[in-house]
Nucleic acid binder design. Structure first.
Lengths: 198, 198, 198, 198
DNA sequence: AATGAATGAGTCTTCATTCAT
DNA sequence: GATGAATGAAGACTCATTCAT
């Protein structure tokens, strides 16, 4: 008796998710050097099967990035739409971002792996670039408003955004490389917020 | 008539430097995925010649790391031995580090590439790890002293060091990825120093 | 639908045998200078496939040597355990060895290739050395006994063993280099046996 | 003051001999796998120089073979032109050959290396083949004569020649591989001569 | 005549991808 | 839908050979 269409559909989705998940782990561990065989092994499927779900290695990465973007971990939009003064919203934003980085450091490690690799297709990097730009713009806008309300120190707002981004990225990296240290001494939000104090 | 010994000596040194330089650029651009062919091309040298100067790809990386370490860009020791109060010395240290990162962002990008690569030999990573530890320790000591003198905010000094390291590393990364932006908006030392303000 | 497990098993065994066989021929012909490409071509198999079955060139050689040893062509033990006087047993032994060399001259050519090659791993050569030693010892023991019973000429038994070994090895070599001549004029056992006549 | 023509000539000859000698040693040690660099090092000359004297690696081997042939070690002609009965001359011949093999086992090792290597040019192998043929023919002729005079056992003379050649070649090989054993137990001429006894 | 720096074709090995079952 | 055998294009490394000095 043949499988029903829905059963097939479900199987396909599960398998796809399983592979993607395995790719995630493998990729976070070994970066672009990850082989298809490793992904297949990690997913407990034959390595021919991977190609039924993804046309190429690149396609897997693309899907990973997509997932990363969809996951919202990189989104600021919803964080920006908060009640309160600009300063309060900025504080909230940064606190939330710190939380996310702390909890999902794997995402950011993956993100940085992808960004740091020339091998990644331009198309892919493009999309991430855009995402980063939105990030940047959102933060800048908030800072400008908070400067207007006197809640943030005056001066070139771009410098402040750069400083914030550098801090957050650096923290993600450190968290990935030295998870133990970060578990022990993850800097409290107050510390980075002082950079913005008037 | 053969070349004089000095001439050969000079050639060897120049070529070695040329190859190392090319490797530097190539490696900073593409990470461990850099091929020997790319290095050779970047150096305007034939494929085989690289092997007259370096016995393997690994050997090139080793030499690069050596150069990195020797360059002093990663050294804090001399920066720690300064006159002045702990707070003044800390300010001086951070200012100097920022300068270095701004001017030689390539070094730090390379450094991060090397650290982030599973393929790097343990021996090599070991050496860099030690260097990083010295960095960390130096900073922490200074912070503790500055806290004692009331020049730096109280609290877990490790958190402050982590915050500083994250900021500096993130800045290097950003500088490498977005040189234009950093040229325009390199954050002034005061910004990061505020993180330490009591 | 995937192949059945048995089908795969069978394919793997056949392919392995095919490659080993090809390696055998190629190696007997060209010695250690044999390239992987030649082996693959000889086996009618793609370049990369050889590596699915053998992890390296060395591994192929190892398997060949193993096969050689297992084949029994190099074994004397069973030939030594025969009924009859020492002289009769010696005659039997040598006759059998000559037969083997005549029929499987390829094995001995390969053997000599392997032994004569500086590149062969020590491990490998070690095993063959031991095998050769057993050969030598078995023969010597038989000769000593036959000397005691007066069936073999008196004198340094080692000289006689050396003479026998030299003869047998030389014959294998000749058989490999000049198969036609040996087919026409393979020396009868009586000739070499005369070397031992009292 | 420029060198005289003769001086140059002499230097050239010395260098050539030096290189050839070094090649000899290196080649006997490692077979065809010997590199030009090794030959140059063994000869204490720069590796560019080797090409002033020999146009290629092949040319060196050719010269070595030439030397081997010229050396007389492979010649039977003069040994055949001896006084005495055919049997006496045969005994003399074999005794002399054994002496030569014992003393110059290197030559025969080299010889066998060359013969056993597919890489050797056909031209080269051709010449050695001819030389071997002369060897063979000379021996056969003597044996036929000695059979006629009843000094050698009757039967297919070719079988006897094959047996003799096999023995001699095998002995050379053994001498090269196990010099110590051969030094201790080099079989006396009487042993091989018994193969011919009527 | 002599040196050794430079070149590039050839060899081993890995791995993304295809395909028969 | 699933498996794993098969392919071949790259990449690291070696070495015979050429060439400037």
């Amino acid at each position: 008796m043949p499988r029903t269409e829905e059963a097939n559909q479900r199987i396909r989705e599960e398998q796809r998710a399983k592979i993607l998940d395995a790719a995630w782990r493998a990729f976070a561990r070994k970066g672009t050097a990850t082989t298809m065989a490793e992904i297949a092994t990690e997913a407990n499927v034959s390595y021919g099967l991977v190609y039924r779900y993804f046309s190429s290695k690149e396609a897997i990465f693309k899907a990973l990035v997509e997932q990363m973007i969809q996951s919202g971990a990189l989104r600021v939009q919803n964080l920006l739409e908060q009640p309160g003064t600009p300063g309060e919203r900025l504080t909230f934003l940064i606190t939330k971002i710190l939380e996310a980085r702390r909890e999902r450091s794997d995402i950011f490690l993956l993100f940085q792996h992808v960004m740091g690799d020339e091998m990644m297709s331009d198309d892919l990097r493009q999309r991430l670039q855009e995402r980063g730009q939105a990030y940047y713009d959102g933060m800048k806008q908030l800072i400008v408003e908070a400067q207007a309300s006197g809640e943030v120190v005056a001066g070139d707002p771009d410098q402040l955004v750069v400083a914030l981004m550098a801090y957050l990225d650096g923290l993600s990296r450190l968290a990935a490389r030295e998870p133990e240290m970060l578990k022990q001494h993850f800097p409290e939000p107050e510390i980075v917020l002082r950079m913005l104090k008037p």
